[in-house]
Amino acid sequence: MAATLCGRVLPKTGWLPLTESVRHGSKAVTRHRKPMHFLKQKLMAVTEYIPPKPIPPPGALSPPVRKTELESGLVILLKRELATVFRECKMIAVVQNNASSAEDMLLLKHRLYRHGITVKYFSNQVMRSFLPDSRYSNMQPLFIGPTVMFVSKEPKVKEMLKVLRSSPQMVLLGACIENTLLSREGILNYSRLPSMATVCGELVGVLALMTSQTVSQLRHHPAHLSALLQQYVEQLQSASTPEPAGRETAFAMEEAAA
């Protein structure tokens, strides 16, 4: 029995098992370097010693020569035109153009031209060379990126805002109205003000009312005094004249005379 079991369990001669166990050698223990903490890295970077650069002896290097670039004739011509625009126009609005198409821009120009507002294009290079030497130097931060100017000889803020509502790609940045620099909120507040004709009419009405009140007050005392004097004269006249006799007294006087 034992021989039978041993014969079944033990492998036969020349037979190879399907799986073989292979023993690997033990691996060597390797220690990885722990990374430095980021706060310590910052501290090491801040406290790192930087040696000073050696100073060259005097006369070894010549001072750098700055080259002055002359402005071209086109830039000078554009600056003259820009000076004319700022001198003749009372409203100069800076608007940012956010990729509006040529068709939308043409339609916007047509709508603005109905109200006497013109669209002007000037490059930022020309604006930056003109503004620092003028009294409009505070407008220089507005000219960043693609910008256009809406100019008119009269301040027509309400009409401009009404046209800009139909063009969301045009963003109003600021404006110079009657030599006063205004932000977007300032322009909205300026548009709510009444027109000059309305203000003049209200002023004329207030002045006329004040004049009429002054005249009435000046005439009140002489009129009152004349009325009192006239009443006093009438009282004196009524007191001096005798009272008229009755009908019976008059008849008796006639009989006595007869």
Rank of each mutant, 00 (worst) to 15 (best):
E234S: 04
V22D: 04
P141T: 00
P63F: 00
R135V: 11
V215P: 00
S183F: 02
A252Q: 05
P244T: 10
Q235R: 08
R192N: 13
W15R: 15
V233Q: 11
T30E: 09
K153F: 01
P132E: 02
R23L: 13
L70E: 06
V75T: 12
A245T: 10
S238N: 14
Q125Y: 06
G73S: 11
L164V: 02
M44V: 10
P141I: 00
P56V: 03
L39G: 05
A83F: 15
P194S: 06
S240L: 15
Q237L: 08
L207Y: 11
G25L: 06
H221Y: 15
V126A: 02
T249S: 07
T4K: 12
T211K: 12
P57Y: 02
A60G: 06
N138S: 15
Y113Q: 13
A2I: 12
P222V: 00
S183T: 09
K90C: 08
R33V: 04
M127H: 01
D133I: 12
S21I: 12
K34V: 08
P63H: 01
P51D: 05
S72P: 04
L188D: 13
D104S: 06
M253A: 15
A28M: 09
N138A: 14
I50K: 06
E202T: 11
P244C: 07
H115A: 06
G205C: 13
Y232H: 14
S238W: 05
E20Y: 08
L77I: 10
P11C: 09
L39D: 09
P155G: 00
P146H: 12
R80Y: 11
E20S: 10
N124P: 01
G205V: 13
A208F: 15
L218R: 08
T249F: 04
L209I: 11
